[in-house]
Simulated scan of single mutants.
Amino acid sequence: MPKIVDVFEMLPPDDIRHTISTPEGILHYQEVGSGAPVLLIHSFGPQPGVTAWMIFRNVLLELSKVRRCIALDMPNFGLSGPVLYDEPFHDVVVRSALSLLDHLSLDRVPVVGTSMGATVALDLAIKAPDRVRGLIVGSCHASTGGDPYLLGPFPSEVQRLFDEAQLDPADCAHTRRLLKALVYDESLITESMLEAIQAFRTSHLDHWKAVAQSTSRSHSNLADLSAIDVPMKIIHGRFDRMVPFEQALMLMSYVRHADVTILNQCGHWPAFERPVTFTAIVEEWLDNNGW
């Protein structure tokens, strides 16, 4: 069982932190462990107060015992960026991920993505199928700008809270409401975690300004999903208030070889909220595929 570390750690130890310069700006990533590589792309949340380490750290502590784990901070999140764009944001992150894979001389890897990172993973598999060995995704839309829902309201509750929180990154009350809506177990959102995220946000206002000055163009990937032919696993929280779990079923209907696991008592951040279960699913899936 992985050791659960204090939730207020925003950044990993210095010895596993790295940066590279790319056309998409400075990219920050963490690399830990050895063996077969796997790329992890983190979730949506208060921007820029979400990092790959914050979302995946407990997963990385266990997964890195047997694998080389590479976790990317998406542009304008964490320590990546700032960068301006006027195009689908997920396309920006796809190019960033490819730049990172090229830098590390990695031809083809399995990709684990949650939320916004999962949409990036799907986009990556569509645009550069020769670089993706397999996919674990979930808590996501397939498309930049979202996909139509059958039952859930659009925009979702959390999307509205995110928009409010982005108006003023120094507003602690809005950040608190957003964070508590992202998880099922609100006790995970401690005051120390909130303070750390607020401090991070206000010390990286150049990232916040870059997003405010950029435009993410909507683009649907639904028609291209059926072309994905690599192994695919979908993990989604039953109580996701950002992306309702009906989206997991929608993805499965387009990618007919994909399997779905719905985690009960779990919100939009399965890797953060249910790290033991999430890690076990990832490890079993990688092992079953011989990676």
Rank of each mutant, 00 (worst) to 15 (best):
R57V: 02
P2L: 04
D287T: 14
F8D: 15
R95C: 08
C172N: 02
S253T: 09
G290M: 14
M250S: 05
S34Y: 10
V120K: 04
L188K: 12
Y149C: 07
P46Q: 07
P23G: 13
D73E: 11
G138I: 03
V120W: 05
R67L: 06
S218P: 07
A142Q: 09
D6S: 11
S214P: 12
E62C: 01
S187F: 05
L60M: 15
G152E: 09
A223L: 10
S156L: 06
K233H: 10
P169V: 13
C69D: 06
A271D: 07
T51A: 12
S218V: 05
L222E: 05
R256G: 02
Y85K: 03
L60G: 00
E284M: 13
L222P: 01
H257G: 11
V111R: 01
Y149S: 11
M116Y: 12
G45V: 11
R176T: 05
V94K: 09
L98N: 03
V93E: 09
R274D: 04
G81M: 00
F245A: 03
P148T: 12
G33Q: 10
E186C: 04
H42D: 10
N221M: 10
W208T: 08
S139G: 15
V158D: 14
A280G: 11
G45T: 11
L225T: 02
G81D: 05
I41G: 03
A196K: 03
K233D: 02
F8A: 13
T22L: 12
M252E: 12
S192T: 10
F56P: 08
H18C: 05
L84G: 07
N289A: 14
A196E: 02
P231F: 00
M193H: 08
H257Q: 15
D259K: 11
I197D: 01
A196S: 15
A97L: 09
R201V: 08
D224Q: 11
A173H: 08
P244M: 07
A212N: 11
D147G: 03
Q198E: 09
P37F: 07
N288I: 07
P48D: 10
T277H: 03
